[in-house]
């Protein structure tokens, strides 16, 4: 009898929370599941937002895209907070080693003056693009309801801030931590013709209201052209021009982008695949924004790796869009 009592009292009476069980059955759930599903308020909101009285709090109509259940979008990396920071801590540790190595051996300040200037003109201004991406992803995280989706965007927001900081540190290494390099670089961002289409594009994204349109523009279209251009093609080009050491300082970005494709691809497949209406709407956004992203990067490509390289990347993006069930933008066809 006492053995039976023992069994009874140690035996669980249920295996997971009700809201998790309703989705996956009453069986032991993963940490990702318990951290990511149905945690947000869904109904009975008390007050309309003073900043947007047309919507309620957690209003699913903050995007025109419709999903039967936004939790159909999940993170293939299964990042909940703990898994996310654990992963990034490792990445930053190796970035930190590279930055210290570079710093100690003066690898950047040994570069010819003209190359240093090129870095400040062609690479470091991207820190501003990163800040724009940070703002956009924070907005999305604040507008999305499903935690599987909102958490990916807040991680993305913080990642972009972090990468903007790494780019800034390249300038600080060049200018001996005085800030003059960053000032110079910001001047290019503000006034150099090379950057103006890009700056305009970033500012244009900052007034996009529909959060799904914004994640598409930022995380798929702009990044889809910019990351391969800058961190693959330009990285190679910089190497050919005697600045191969810079490559170790942008390793984080290369690893990061490769990883980010996992969730952006999964999200796009799920959302475009949901309905004809979604596909049509998203296609219209692709048609509107993809040519702008291409145009914004053209001067940078022309000055560095050439437009053929950008076209090649554009073709890769089209292949990716096709996999989601989308077409190349009309801009490409023209």
């Amino acid at each position: 009898m006492s053995i039976e009592i023992k069994t009874n009292s140690a035996e669980p009476i249920r295996h997971t929370f009700g809201h998790i069980a309703r989705r996956f059955g009453d069986k032991p759930a993963s940490r990702y599941q318990e951290a990511s599903y149905d945690l947000e308020a869904k109904t009975n909101f008390h007050y309309r937002p003073l900043w947007d009285s047309k919507h309620t709090l957690n209003d699913p109509t903050r995007t025109a895209v419709q999903m039967e259940d936004w939790y159909a979008v999940t993170d293939p990396r299964q990042f909940y907070y703990g898994a996310y920071v654990g992963n990034r801590a490792k990445m930053q540790e190796s970035a930190d080693t590279s930055f210290s190595f570079c710093d100690k051996r003066n690898l950047l300040t040994r570069l010819p003056e003209s190359t240093q200037k090129q870095l400040l003109r062609l690479l470091v201004p991207l820190r501003h693009v990163e800040l724009g991406a940070n703002m956009n992803n924070s907005k999305i995280a604040g507008d999305v309801n499903a935690t599987t989706v909102s958490q990916m965007h807040i991680y993305q927001a913080m990642d972009r801030l972090g990468m903007g900081q790494y780019l800034s540190r390249i300038a600080l290494m060049l200018d001996g931590s005085t800030g003059t390099g960053l000032d110079e670089s910001k001047g290019y961002w503000m006034d150099d013709g090379l950057w103006q289409p890009m700056r305009k594009l970033v500012e244009d994204t900052l007034v996009v209201d529909d959060w799904f349109e914004l994640t598409l523009v930022q995380n798929i279209l702009i990044d889809g052209l910019m990351y391969p251009l800058v961190y693959e093609k330009m990285d190679q080009w910089l190497g050919e021009n005697g600045a191969e050491d810079v490559s170790m300082l942008t390793e984080f970005m290369r690893d990061w982008y490769k990883e980010s494709l996992r969730w952006t691809n999964a999200m796009m497949k799920a959302v475009v695949g949901e309905s004809e209406a979604n596909a049509k709407l998203i296609q219209s956004w692709v048609d509107q924004w993809e040519p702008q992203a291409y145009k914004a990067l053209t001067p940078l490509a022309e000055t560095t790796v050439g437009t053929e390289a950008l076209d090649e990347i554009r073709a890769q993006l089209t292949t990716r869009l096709n996999k989601f069930g989308l077409q190349q933008s009309q801009g490409v066809a023209a």
Partner: peptide
């Protein structure tokens, strides 16, 4: 400050 707020800029296109 350089690593945070200096990444922001005064917008002119919007």
């Amino acid at each position: 400050q350089y690593l945070t707020r200096d990444m922001a800029w005064e917008p002119t296109y919007q």
